[in-house]
Design a protein around this nucleic acid. Structure first.
Lengths: 154, 154
DNA sequence: TTAATCAGGACCATTTTAGTACTAATTGAC
DNA sequence: GTCAATTAGTACTAAAATGGTCCTGATTAA
C-alpha cells in the first residue's frame, strides 16, 4: 500500500484549517469543531506539530495554536516528518546510526534514489496547495447520504 | 515513516536471488537457503508473487520458481503492487469505487500528484538495479560481528 | 482566584503485520 | 503405480503498530 497513516491525513486537515486564519490563535476545540475531528485527537496532533515547529502554541486562557510560518512554507514532507518520522522507504534508511552497515550496505543505492524522488515530490507540495484542495470540498450531503469528512477520506 | 513492509523488502531479496539464474527453476528451499530467510516466509512470498505474475511456478518433483521475465522488465512498483497492493499514499486513492466522493473530493488533486511522482520513481527502478545492489553486499563479518542479512536490513 | 488552555504521559482497543502450520494437488523418477 | 518432492490454498497465532482516550500538571488572561 505504501500509504501514510490516517493521523497524518488528519494533520493536513488541521493545518489546512489553521491556514484559513494564519494570524489568529485557534484553540484545539475550535479546530475540532471546524474539522469534525475528535478533540483528543486534534489535541494530540497539534501537540506533536508544535513540538516539530509547524505550529506555535500559547498556553492559558485565550491560548491556542497558529501556523509558525506561511502556508506555502510548509510542505507535505514537513507534515509527514512531524507525524510519522522521517520518510524512509526501507527500514534501514530511516534509522541513521542504527544499522551498522549503513555506508557499505548495497541496499541503499537504488532505494535511496527512490527515497530522494519521493522526498522531492513531498517537498514540492505545500500546505497552500493542500488547503486550496480542502476548500473544493463536496457539499456535506450527497444524494441524501450524510457524508462526514472522515467518510470522505475512507 | 512511509515505509514499505518488511515482507516487500524480503520479496526483493528473493527476486534478486532468482535473477542470478533467470532461466533455472529454483525451489522455495533453495531460495530460503541462499537468502537466509525462513522457508515458510519465502514460500508465502513466492506464492504471492506467482499469483501476481512476477514469477512462474512448476509443481511436483523438480518443480520450483523462476522469474517470469527479464530482471529489467520487473520494477520496484511491480514488487510493491504484488505484495502490498497498489501504491496509494492516501487511503481513499487506493480503493477505487470504495469512496463515494472520488470524483469531487478535493483531497485528490495534490496527493494525486505526489502519488504519480512516487509511482514514477518506483517504475524507474528495476529488479536488475536492485539485484546489482544486492551483490555489492558487505562481507558477512564486519569487525568481528557476524552480520546476518536480516541484521543488515534492520 | 478561577476558568480556559496547552504539555506530557499513560493507557487500552483495534487493526495490521509477520510468521507458522496443515492439508490438498501435482509431477518426475524409480 | 507408488513415492517423494514440491507448489497451492487456507487457516491460525503472536507480536507490533495504530488510533484514540483520559488524566494530571503547568500556564496565563481576566
Amino acid at each position: 500500500m505504501l500509504k501514510m497513516s490516517r493521523l497524518t491525513d488528519y494533520g493536513t486537515m488541521v493545518l489546512s484549517f489553521l491556514a484559513t486564519n494564519p494570524t489568529q490563535m485557534q484553540s484545539a476545540s475550535d479546530v475540532s469543531r471546524h474539522t469534525h475531528l475528535a478533540l483528543p485527537t486534534v489535541s494530540k496532533l497539534l501537540k506533536q506539530m508544535a513540538r516539530a515547529g509547524l505550529v506555535v502554541s500559547a498556553r492559558g486562557a485565550k491560548g491556542g495554536y497558529q501556523l509558525s510560518r506561511a502556508p506555502d512554507e510548509i510542505s507535505a514532507a514537513d507534515v509527514i516528518d512531524a507525524l510519522e518520522g522521517p520518510v524512509a522507504i526501507t527500514q534501514c534508511s530511516g534509522s541513521v546510526g542504527h544499522c551498522q552497515l549503513e555506508d557499505i550496505c548495497g541496499v541503499s543505492s537504488s532505494w535511496q534514489k527512490i527515497n530522494v524522488a519521493i522526498r522531492r515530490a513531498l517537498d514540492d507540495v505545500r500546505l497552500s496547495h493542500l488547503a486550496a484542495d480542502e476548500f473544493r470540498m463536496p457539499p456535506i450531503n450527497l444524494m441524501g447520504i450524510p457524508i462526514t469528512r472522515e467518510a470522505g477520506r475512507q
